Simulated scan of single mutants.
Amino acid sequence: MKTKILVAFIALVLFSCQNKEKPASKNIIKTIVQDTLSKTLGGTANLSKVTAKNDKVIELIREQLLVVLKKDLPVMTKDQRFFYYDAFDLNNDKKDEYFVGFSNPYFCGSGGCSGYILNNDGSVINKFTVTDFPIFIGTTSSENFKDLIFKSGNTLHSLKMKNGKYPLNPSVQEKWKGDIPAASPVILDIYAKKLEKYSF
């Protein structure tokens, strides 16, 4: 009889413990979810392990850089071999073009930094030089490609597609008049957004 009472008592204790643990675990999960959500909305969440970019695109850019910078690679240090990128559909063909930028002494000087604009297939549309980041997408188009607003030497310049290319050097292009349109997307905001860098 004592054994049956003891078994019943143990079963009752285990049952009551299980019932108490479930709400507690639900509360813990709810707390974690709420904390993560509030930090994400507030911009303080640690998203360093989140893959925000497409691995195929990164590999495509990496391969193209190894081709266009083939002569530079032997003299570059490991610390200089990294890039940032941003994607934007410049010609409304439902395929992104890729802006590739750098922020180290090999690619940057007193006038700014250099970089590339690549097609969706990785081919080079343009190289650009003496540019301060970020780059802005304009609200008008030329040759079915969005006009761009580049900052160079503390001055904004308008870059328009001509004969399938944007100008190489923004600093010698027409100065942008007025403010940047509020609707202009921001590209390669390397410093403010702290974009992830990738090696090549």
Rank of each mutant, 00 (worst) to 15 (best):
P185N: 03
P185C: 02
A182F: 03
S184A: 12
A45F: 08
I29N: 14
L12H: 06
T3F: 10
K165M: 04
T140F: 10
A11K: 08
K2H: 09
N154L: 11
F82I: 04
P181C: 11
T40Y: 13
G164L: 02
N119F: 05
E63A: 15
T51V: 13
F88Q: 03
A24L: 14
T77N: 13
V67N: 11
L73E: 13
T40G: 10
S123V: 08
D179I: 01
I58Y: 11
S152W: 00
F128I: 03
Q64Y: 00
F136M: 11
T40V: 15
N91G: 08
I5D: 07
L65C: 00
L60A: 01
V130T: 09
I190V: 12
F15M: 14
T131K: 03
K177R: 08
V13G: 02
T131S: 05
I117P: 07
N119S: 07
A11Q: 08
Y84E: 02
S114F: 00
D35R: 13
L60C: 00
G138Y: 07
P185L: 03
Y98P: 10
G164M: 05
P23S: 11
F136P: 00
D79I: 02
S114Q: 13
L168T: 12
F88N: 07
N54L: 07
Y191P: 09
K2W: 02
H157L: 06
A8D: 11
G164T: 03
T155Y: 09
V67P: 10
F200K: 07
S152C: 01
K94H: 06
M1H: 09
T40A: 15
A183S: 15
L14P: 03
K175E: 12
K20M: 14
K56M: 13
N19W: 11
F107P: 00
K2C: 06
I135W: 05
C113W: 00
A24P: 06
K127P: 01
S158Y: 05
V7H: 11
I58V: 15
T140Q: 15
K4L: 13
D35S: 14
S48Y: 04
V75W: 09
L12G: 14
L66I: 04
V67Y: 06
N46F: 09
L47Q: 06
F15Q: 09
K193C: 09
K71W: 06
I32Q: 13
I117D: 06
K70L: 10
E174L: 07
E97H: 06
L41A: 11
L66T: 05
Y106Q: 05
I10Q: 07
T51C: 09
I187P: 04
K26I: 08
L66D: 08
Y116V: 10
T51R: 14
D55L: 13
D189T: 05
A52V: 15
L65E: 01
P181W: 11
I58G: 08
G153H: 07
F99I: 01
P185F: 04
L60M: 15
L188R: 06
E143A: 08
L37I: 14
K26N: 12
I5P: 03
N91K: 10
N169R: 05
A192P: 00
L65N: 00
K2Y: 08
Y116C: 08
V100S: 02
K197E: 07
